[in-house]
Design a protein around this nucleic acid. Structure first.
Lengths: 202, 202, 202, 202
DNA sequence: CGGTAAACGAGACGGTACGTCGTGTCTTTGA
DNA sequence: TCAAAGACACGACGTACCGTCTCGTTTACCG
C-alpha cells in the first residue's frame, strides 16, 4: 500500500521527552506493584520512587492504574513466541501454561486485580484487552483452525465460545482463588474441552 | 471435646442495635454502588446517605467494600431456587442464565469489580466465594451427577475442571467485556462443553 | 436592651474542637513567620510543624495568611494599655513608640507585609484594621480630644487627617524602608505634626 | 578618566534581541496586573499571554514581580512634570493629587501591593524606591525649600520627617483602606501639615 | 424508678493521596 | 546565538476519604 497513510509528522517543537524518565517511571510502577500490590501503586509513590515530579507522570498517564498497566505491557513479551510443534493441541497447552504463569506472577496478579477494578470501557481496558486477551485468542484461533485442518477438532465449532472455554478458567481461578492455577489444571482444561462431557459414542 | 463451647451468651447490656440502622446502611451502600460504581462506595458517602455516624458502620464492617458486599448478599437470593426439570442439562442452562443476569446487573457488575479488586485472601473474599461461587458449583455438581446417572454425561470426568469450564466464561466476559454476556452465550457454553471439540466418532 | 438578641445558641453537636490543636497551629504559624518570613508561612509547613493534618487547619482558616494574622492577633496585646500621664501629647508619643516597636519586630514586619499583600477587602483585612489600626486611632482620638480640652491642640482640627498624619509614617517607613523607624523618629513625627510647618506667628 | 573604559563592544553575535518581544512581555504583565491583581502575575501567565517562552523572560527579569514593576515603571511618567506655579504649596498639592491618582489606579494598586509584599532589601525595592518615592521626595524637598525661601514655611524644620508626613498618608490609606483616598484628602493633608495642631498663637 | 451501659448522630482529628498550578532550569528545533 | 516551545524536578495548593476519637443524646435493661 505505497503512498497511502501520508503520516502527518507534526514535527514536535520544544524539548523532547526524555525516554530515561519514562523508563524510570515504569520501573518504579512495576516495583511498587510487585512489592505492595495494587494499593501501593500511587502517583505520589511512583513519583517519589522514580525521582520524578508528579506532573511529569500526569503528562503521559491519566492515573496510577494506567502507569501500572503500561509497565506491565512494556515489560512483558506480549507475543509469547510459541515454538510451533507438530501438534496444535500441544501448542495450545503450551500457550495456556505460559499465560497462566505470566498472570500468576506477582505483577500479573496485580495487573489482573487492576483490570478487574477498572469498571467501564476505558482506554486502559482496551489496551489490555488488545495486548493480551485478543492476542492470545488470535493465536488460539489459529491453532484451533490448524487442528481442524488436521482433523483433531471438528469443523463447524462455535469459535468464540470455544476460545472463551479455553481462556476463561485461567482468570477465573486467578480471581476467585478457589483452587490452584497450575499447569496440571491448564492441561486438564484443554483435555476436557477437547473431549467434551458427553459419553463417547462408539 | 463434648459439651464444650458453652456458648457464652454474653448478655448484651446497654442499648441494643437498631435493625433499622443496619438496613439503612445496606440500602445506602447498594444505591451508591448502583449509581456511582465501586469508587462511589465510601464510608463517608454511606454514612451521609444513610444518615448515620461513621462509627456505627465501623462497629459492624471493617471497610466500605465489606458493606457493599453485605448489601449485595443481603439483597440477593443466594439460593436461586431452580425448578428441577426432567433434564439436568436444561437445568444447568437455566442456572447459568440466572447467574449471568444477576452479575450483569448494575449491582452485580459492581460487586464483581469489588471482588476482583480484593487482592489476597480476605474474609470478604471467602464470604463471597461461599455464597455465590461455591453454592453455584455445588448445585452444578449435583446436576452433573444426575446427568451422569441419566447417561447424558460420561462418568469419570474431572469434576473440578468441568465446573470451571461451565462457570468461568460468565466472569470472563463480565470482566473483559470483549463480547456480550447473554443467554445465547451461556446456552452455547453448555452445549459446547457437553459436545467437546473433538470430531464425533462414528 | 433586655430580651433583645435571642441569641440562638445552636448547640454544637459532635466532638468539640480541641483548643490545644488551635494553639499548636497558631504557634507554628508564628514561628514560621518569625524564622522564614511571609513566604515560609504555608499550609503544609504549618501543618507539619504543628503536627496537625491540613484539613484541620482548613476547618478554621481559609488560607495560610489568615492563620498568620490570627497568630499575630492572638499573641499580641491589642490594647496596649497606656499609662495615662499628665500630658496627652506625651501619651501619644508613648503609644507611637510602642506601635513602632511592635510592627518593627520580626513578626510585626511579617504581618505588615502580609497585610500589604492582601489586596481587596477581605475578612482578614477587616480584622486587622479593627484590631490594630482602628483601636490605635480610637485611643489616639481620645488623647487628641483630651489635648484639645487641655488647650494643647487647637479645636476644629480635621480629626481623620490628623490621625492619619500621626500613624501613617510608621507604616510608610516600615514598608518603604528608606529610613530607620525608631523612637526618635516617632517623637519627631508628633512634634512636627503639633508644630506644623508654618512659621510661628508672634 | 580620559581614554579609560574602552567600551568593550562585545560584538553581539547571533540573533539580536527583539525589542518587540520586550514590549509584548511588559504589556502582558501590565494587563495581568490590571485584570487579575498581583496573584495573576505569573511567569507562565505572562509568557502565555505575550506568546513568549519562559526563558526569554528569565533572561531579563529574575521573577514575575520584577516584570510587573518594570511594566509599571515603563508605562508611567516617573517625572510628573509639574507646572511650577507661583505658590510652592499649591504645587505640592498638585503633586500629591497626581501621586494619589497614579497609585489609586488599578495598576498602581497592584504595584503597591507588590511592593508591600516584597520583604527585605531587594533590587526591586530599590528600583521602585528610586523611581517613585525618592523622586517625589526630591521634588517635594525642592518645593519645601522654595516655600521656606518664600516665608511660607518655617526654616529649621526636620526635612525628612516633614516629607514623610506629606507622602505617608497616601500609602497608608491605599494599604489600609479605612477611608477614601481622594484629592480632598490630599489637600487636607497639606493644609494640616502646614498649620500644625497647636493652637495659633495670637 | 432511677442508674448504667451501650448504641447512636455528629463531627474533630492526624493522615495519605489526589490532581493542579506555578517555579526556575534544561534541552530541543527553527530563524 | 537568540527565540519559541515545552519537558523536567520541585513544592504548595485545596479536596476527599480514611479510620479513630470524643462528645452529648437516646434507649434499653437491671438492680
Amino acid at each position: 500500500m505505497p503512498g497511502a497513510k501520508p503520516k502527518i509528522v507534526m514535527k514536535p517543537r520544544g524539548r523532547p521527552r526524555d525516554p530515561k524518565v519514562r523508563a524510570a517511571i515504569l520501573k518504579a510502577a512495576r516495583e511498587l506493584l510487585d512489592s505492595g500490590g495494587l494499593t501501593a501503586v500511587t502517583m505520589e509513590g511512583i513519583a517519589a520512587r522514580a525521582g520524578v515530579g508528579k506532573p511529569t507522570i500526569y503528562r503521559e498517564w491519566p492515573n496510577a492504574h494506567s502507569v501500572a498497566l503500561s509497565a506491565f505491557l512494556e515489560f512483558t513479551p506480549s507475543d509469547m513466541e510459541l515454538r510451533a510443534s507438530a501438534s496444535p493441541i500441544a501448542d495450545l497447552k503450551q500457550q495456556l501454561r505460559k499465560l497462566a504463569a505470566l498472570f500468576a506472577s506477582r505483577t500479573g496478579r496485580g495487573v489482573t486485580a487492576l483490570i478487574a477494578a477498572t469498571q467501564g470501557e476505558t482506554e486502559l481496558m482496551k489496551a489490555f484487552r488488545h495486548h493480551f486477551i485478543l492476542k492470545s485468542r488470535a493465536e488460539g484461533q489459529k491453532l484451533l483452525e490448524r487442528a481442524v485442518a488436521a482433523g483433531d477438532v471438528r469443523a463447524g465449532l462455535n469459535m468464540d465460545v470455544a476460545l472463551d472455554l479455553i481462556y476463561a478458567p485461567i482468570y477465573f481461578r486467578l480471581l476467585i482463588g478457589h483452587a490452584p492455577l497450575d499447569s496440571a489444571f491448564t492441561d486438564d482444561v484443554i483435555d476436557t474441552v477437547m473431549a467434551g462431557l458427553k459419553p463417547h459414542k462408539r
